Amino acid sequence: MNLLFSEYTLGKNKLKNRTVMAPMTRSRAIGNIPNDLMAEYYSQRAGAGLLITEGVSPSPNGLGYARIPGVFSEAQIQGWKKVTDAVHAKNGKIFVQLMHSGRVGNSLNLPEGASLAGPSAIGLKGTVWTDQEGNQPYSTPREMTQADIQKAIQEYVHASKSAIQAGFDGVELHGANGYLIEQFLHPSANHRNDEYGGDWKKRNRFALEVVKAVVDAIGADKVGIRLSPYGVFNDLEIHDEIEEQYEDLASAFGKLGIVYIHIVDHSSMGAPKPKDSTVAVIRESYKSANPSGTYILSGGYDVERANSDLKHKNADLIAFGRSFISNPDLVEKLEKGIPLVEADQSTFYTPGEKGYTDYPVAALQV
């Protein structure tokens, strides 16, 4: 049996197959507000069992990149309703990924009154794109106070409620790729000496408090989280005790009853590969505490490898990323063995429909 294309129940959601469209930044939200073009983009890809949106900021302070959307204002909620309505019209399911960029970004990309902040005042090397002045150095963040931390947690709560109001089937908290939640997890980004920094148990606290607050607000069956153990994106560094740290996190998430954990593996693009033992420990710790929970794996999958991991219960769902950019009908192509279209990387983050909604759909054989 081809498990990848079989139905699956995720919490209270009936998925038409086990493919997931992974979250991918696309930078089409002019003024940080979702629009008709974005509704078309997600609707085109509603053949996936589950769609996860690009990173969406829960706060003005989290809009560190140009043209990324938020979900904290009424205009943004109304914009996202266009997206969720379009996906649901095609019998699709969609979670919003809440991504607070934290220290990652430039102040030119932030709205008036917002500021770049992170667990510690440690900036990133290199540059980031701004529409006003092109590539600019990353701004140095201010260190978040205790009050800032509590405010940020409540911003995640408000954004989660706003997402449900906008029609999303759930939220994925972005605890990966070097953004705010993972910044707290890593000693290279978190030099605090209070209860949110120091040893890994203290560094885990912010992630756990965010997850608990969101679960309390919208229900555990609507909450997932994405993690990237051994990730080094956005100036993070490999550190000691990763497996032990993530085992503890996974167990705690399982006890909170969250509907899924989603593991990032970007080794196909040159990043360090998560240790197999760590991926297994996270799964086992999470599932021991929450046997009905769902485990999602992503990173460089083809149909054969996906079915192997599903068959051996290494994963319940498989996420595909860049291939969805240039193949809106990816699921149909994978199922029928139709060759895939290569994506144009030069249009990944540019405004407009080029490289976004203009990829052709194959004329499928009936």
Rank of each mutant, 00 (worst) to 15 (best):
G118L: 13
S267A: 13
M269V: 11
V223W: 14
L256I: 03
E54H: 05
E244R: 12
I33C: 11
Q345T: 09
K336D: 05
V366F: 11
D329K: 00
S308M: 09
T25M: 13
Q154V: 05
P58S: 07
P60N: 08
D131W: 07
A152F: 12
P339Q: 00
E54K: 01
F184E: 06
S267G: 01
V361W: 03
T127Q: 06
I238S: 08
N307M: 02
V361Q: 09
V223I: 13
I258T: 06
S298F: 00
I181S: 06
Q245N: 09
E335N: 11
Q76R: 01
N327D: 12
K202Y: 04
Q78S: 11
H100C: 08
I282V: 14
L364F: 12
L4W: 00
E172D: 13
L15R: 05
H239G: 03
E209P: 07
V232D: 03
N135T: 05
T347G: 04
T278V: 11
Q245L: 10
I238G: 11
G79Q: 04
K161S: 05
E247G: 15
G224N: 09
A217S: 14
K222I: 10
M269L: 12
A29T: 13
P351Q: 10
I242K: 00
G70T: 06
G11S: 08
G113C: 11
I122H: 12
M24Q: 10
K202V: 02
H262G: 05
G175C: 07
A280Q: 13
Q136S: 00
G337W: 10
L334W: 13
L63G: 04
H158F: 08
G123F: 02
V259Q: 15
D265E: 12
D36I: 15
G299R: 01
S188Y: 08
D316Q: 04
K311A: 14
T145Q: 07
P351G: 10
N91R: 11
H158Q: 13
W129Q: 07
D221I: 04
T278I: 07
T350K: 14
I181Y: 07
N61H: 14
Y349P: 00
P60A: 10
A166L: 08
A220V: 07
N193L: 01
V341W: 03
G293D: 03
T19Y: 02
N135G: 02
R205L: 13
E182H: 03
A166M: 04
R322A: 10
N314E: 14
A46V: 12
A362T: 08
V259Y: 05
A250W: 09
P339S: 04
M21P: 04
G257W: 01
F324G: 11
E243S: 15
F184Y: 13
D221M: 06
A315P: 08
F5E: 09
P274G: 01
G175F: 07
A117G: 08
S292V: 02
S6H: 06
E237F: 09
F72H: 15
V259N: 03
G352Q: 03
A250N: 06
V281R: 10
E243P: 12
V56N: 04
G113K: 14
A220R: 12
S59M: 03
G337E: 10
G113I: 12
T294L: 00
S251K: 14
R28F: 08
H266N: 15
A220Y: 10
L15H: 04
S268A: 11
S139F: 00
T9W: 00
